[in-house]
Computed example of a mutant assay.
Amino acid sequence: MSRFFGQIRQAGYVVPDIEAAMDYWSRVLGVGPFFYNDRVPIRNYRYRGEAYEPHNSVALANSGPLQIELIQCRNDVPSMYRDFTRAGNTGLQHVAYWTESYDADLARLTAQGFVPVMSGEVGERGRFIYFDTEFHPGTVIELSEVAGPKGEMFRLIREAAETWDGSDPVRPFPDLSKL
């Protein structure tokens, strides 16, 4: 447990082929089921102060309490993911901490000197922000809001993993508007 952030709740991997990565994680490592969205609807996306429209595919599964996120960039929009792959990296790109007190935690972290680089929203009360903390691959820190439907989706994904028997290893994202 981090004395600054609490538990690491997610390990985010940037991959060149998300379908192959889901197959490997589920078939070889036994992690799943993966909930997959070919085009995550990100609103208010910003990278280094500029607005863009990313097309990212994302797959989520749990291994115990730790969520595994697989990310594939489908366009060349500036992002920390693109920076990571352009530097020749693949694999673990970030660790995420979840919060239901996003504004307070964001204020606390920026007061401590953390510099926001990339941010956006997924669903209602599903904001996220990445900080300029990459000193070697896999050390980027994400703060992810889970107070709304995104948090409910994460709970459903964790519960699906608890009883997963290996069948139906790739499933669609739950509809956040219905959670």
Rank of each mutant, 00 (worst) to 15 (best):
R48A: 06
M118P: 05
G113S: 14
R46L: 05
E121A: 14
D103P: 02
F84M: 06
D105Q: 12
L66M: 14
L70S: 05
N62W: 07
A96P: 03
R48W: 09
P65N: 09
P65E: 09
V77R: 02
S63W: 06
S101L: 12
N56T: 10
V117D: 01
Y81F: 13
G49K: 06
T85W: 11
C73Y: 02
L92S: 02
E69R: 07
Y81R: 01
E53F: 05
H94F: 15
Y102S: 09
V117S: 06
S63P: 05
E53L: 04
Y97T: 11
N56Q: 13
P65F: 07
E121V: 11
G113A: 13
A51Q: 15
R48F: 02
V122W: 07
N75Q: 04
H94V: 03
D103L: 09
M80C: 13
Y102I: 07
R46T: 13
P78Q: 12
F84D: 07
A107N: 02
G88Y: 04
V115G: 01
L109R: 01
L66R: 11
M80G: 10
G123T: 10
R74Q: 14
M80D: 01
G64N: 08
F114A: 06
R108T: 09
F114K: 04
M80N: 11
V122R: 11
E69P: 07
N75P: 03
L66W: 03
R74T: 02
D103I: 06
P78R: 04
A61K: 00
E121L: 12
N89P: 10
G88V: 12
A51S: 14
D76L: 12
E69W: 12
P54M: 08
T99K: 10
G91N: 12
I68K: 00
W98C: 00
E50I: 04
H94Q: 15
A104M: 04
L109P: 01
A87E: 12
R74I: 06
A107I: 03
R48N: 00
S79A: 04
L70M: 11
S119R: 13
P116Y: 03
Q67I: 04
R46E: 08
H55E: 15
S57G: 14
Y52S: 06
P65V: 01
F84C: 08
S119H: 08
C73F: 01
H55W: 09
D103Q: 11
G120Q: 03
E121F: 03
T110Y: 06
T99E: 12
F84P: 03
Y97F: 15
V115D: 09
L92R: 11
L66P: 00
P65W: 06
G49M: 10
R74L: 14
V95M: 13
H55D: 14
L109V: 02
Y81C: 10
G49A: 03
R48Q: 15
Y102A: 08
F114H: 05
F84Q: 14
L60S: 01
V77G: 01
P54T: 10
A111R: 11
L60I: 14
V122Q: 10
E100G: 06
A96C: 13
A59C: 15
I71K: 00
W98D: 08
Y47P: 02
A51G: 12
E121I: 08
E50R: 15
A59D: 02
A87C: 10
P54D: 04
